[in-house]
Design a binder for these strands. Structure first.
Length: 357
DNA sequence: TGCAAATCGGGGAGGCCCCT
DNA sequence: AGGGGCCTCCCCGATTTGCA
């Protein structure tokens, strides 16, 4: 064990913030923002209005906080105690337990303001929308003469993913910098906060911010690819079903159905494990084959290629990848492993749909 | 021991149900 | 009939497990 201080009292702002947003405690901060705002204001008035809080007052204050938190949500649902109330009760208990002295209430205030502000920032940070996706796809598909090049379809998906990541990260970081700057100025002017504490508090806020921002990036990344894939099909006049379809536990991002055959598409950043769920289920999905597109090669192992091959499906990878280099000559995999630059042409050929190619 | 596979943890989206 | 509550799914990165 490393010899560092693990005293949780050192990180109260962080833990208050963590508990307030945790989904296991009902995602209180994102759903009961107004209650939190009022609680913060009320605590501020009370803290400023007097000197040191007496111990009995502290106990009263803790119960007020508990009641405010639990009072914000309905207790029952369908005659039973609602799950949400139970989660909120857990939250209140944890918050109360961390309050041991007056200063902890100040830390709670700071945490409340931080999580509320973080939600605002994440809500208003410009997300990577349809417009940006379309622009990048179009720019990638165009050759020197301005004509659309179907061999660039995979590159377009890759660029959208790559640019989207950078874009969103930047969009999320700038307002964070503004917020941290503002907070630091306030903390410096606050006689209750020592210099070193500023670093402690700020790091807690930022740590929690990035955790949430990262989750949010994860959940939007998939939609970006779905949108891009559809736009690519549109650009080449390939009639695609458009929206993703769900088949129990598996999702097919798009489908193309033609006179000669039908394909379900699964387009992912990485293959992970979930791709196996779509194997052997073509009949259920209502397509002849499932074609995978993986942007990153990290998960494309020979074993997985074999599984996809046994399923009679295909996966598209870039020609300049080592995966292609190493396995494209393997006779067993020749049907399964395909070069990314053939993607659109293969779709048209396999399904027999009319297109602008 | 080192890599691949599997699982975990968690916020958000979306859809459905049923309460109020 | 509007919306809160709940469920299931997505994705990702991180962690754990499994296996040559």
């Amino acid at each position: 064990m490393a010899d560092y201080s693990g005293d949780p009292s050192e990180f109260k702002v962080y833990w208050f913030a963590r508990d307030l947003v945790a989904s296991s405690y009902g995602s209180f901060a994102t759903k009961e923002t107004e209650t939190l705002r009022q609680l913060s204001d009320q605590l501020e008035r009370e803290l400023d209005g007097r000197g040191l809080i007496q111990e009995t007052d502290l106990e009263i204050k803790k119960e007020q906080i508990r009641d405010t938190i639990t009072g914000a949500v309905n207790r029952t649902y369908g005659g039973d105690i609602s799950k949400r109330y139970r989660q909120t009760e857990d939250l209140a208990e944890r918050v109360i337990r961390r309050i041991e002295e007056e200063h902890d209430i100040r830390e709670l205030r700071i945490a409340i303001d931080a999580v509320v502000r973080t939600s605002e920032i994440l809500d208003t940070a410009p997300s990577f929308g349809k417009g940006e996706i379309v622009d990048i796809v179009d720019e990638t598909l165009q050759d020197d003469s301005g004509a659309l090049d179907p061999s660039k379809a995979y590159d377009a998906l890759y660029n959208v993913d790559f640019e989207g990541e950078a874009y969103q990260l930047g969009a999320q970081r700038e307002p964070l910098i503004d917020y941290v700057y503002e907070e630091m100025r306030e903390f410096r002017a606050d006689p209750h906060i020592e210099d070193r504490e500023i670093a402690r508090i700020i790091s807690g806020i930022v740590q929690e911010y990035e955790r949430r921002a990262g989750q949010s990036r994860a959940s939007t990344a998939g939609n970006v690819l779905e949108t891009a894939l559809q736009h690519i099909f549109d650009q080449f006049g390939v009639p695609a079903s458009g929206n993703p379809a769900h088949f129990g536990d598996l999702e097919i991002d798009n489908m193309v159905d033609g006179s000669d055959g039908s394909i379900g598409f699964s387009c992912k950043r990485t293959l992970r494990e979930r791709f196996r769920q779509s194997l052997s289920r073509e009949a259920e999905i209502g397509v002849d084959e499932v074609w995978f597109v993986s942007l990153l090669m990290a998960d494309v192992s020979k074993e997985k290629l074999q599984d996809i091959s046994n399923d009679g499906s295909r996966i598209y990878v870039p020609r300049d990848s080592f995966v292609w280099n190493r396995y494209s000559t393997d006779d067993n995999l020749s049907y399964t492993l395909r070069p990314a630059d053939h993607f659109i042409r293969d779709v048209v050929e396999f399904t027999g749909v009319s297109s602008d190619l």
